[in-house]
Nucleic acid binder design. Sequence first.
DNA 1: ACTGGCTCCTGAGGGC
DNA 2: TGCCCTCAGGAGCCAG
Length: 271
Amino acid sequence: MPELPEVETARRGIAPHVVGRRVTGVTVRNPRLRYPVPRRLASLLTGRAVQAVERRGKYLWLAYDNGALILHLGMSGSLCVVPAARPPRKHDHVDIRFDHGQSLRLHDPRRFSVMVWSPGDPLQHALLKDIGIEPLGAGLDGEYLYRRSRGRRVTVKQFIMDGRIVAGVGNIYANEALFMAGILPLRPAGRISLARYRHLGEAIKSVLGEAIRQGGTTLRDFYHGEGRPGYFQQYLRVYQRHGTPCQCCGHPIRMQRLGQRSSFYCGTCQR
DNA sequence: ACTGGCTCCTGAGGGC
DNA sequence: TGCCCTCAGGAGCCAG
């Protein structure tokens, strides 16, 4: 269930269990993820210690002294730390075993996830080098969104979901942030005022930050190795709530397909 | 440079 | 019960 808050929660959940630990072996049960898992993974990692677990957008990487193992969880991927001897479930594609008897295990039914090796700085890797601004950093504000959106004819929702503009805003939080900011998802990005982009910038930070804070309870689940879907569901105000009354005005939330994605909005509160 | 559409894959859920 | 269809939290890639 990886939107940015879940990826950050995964990072915080696994880091204490793997940082400083030395790799003792690797098992790749199915290398056919989005890109092939490198055949030489075991020889690259074995004997080396994890120096850090970092994140950029929805990408994670384990930093080693000889490079970085870049990870992306796609639509259905998850990571957990489990006893190395625990039998794998279906779709447990990769285990990285460590010197304390635990394994970092990648599970992904749809296999859209990524596990690739970067011999140099992962931020210069082709998959990461053009990623947009971090939504929780100081750089995301109304001025940035306004400037980058001039002349753009895509809808504002597609604009904020474009990873080259803002890193890590997925379908759920794009819908939620636009509701918070009172902006219709299908409005052209280039026709929105600076004042409204200021609201939107704050809304993106607010919704992602709040989701990460609530991800705290999920940390234990990574330790215990269980996925935990739907924790944020109770806080969602528009996502998948079509037909139910808007919490602000009572009019029904609407759904409309935009591109390949479903959009949810209140036609009264959002303009 | 932008834009929209397609693609990878499995599983869940609804209609019949 | 089963079969077929649509949809799902991503994002790289391609043609126009």
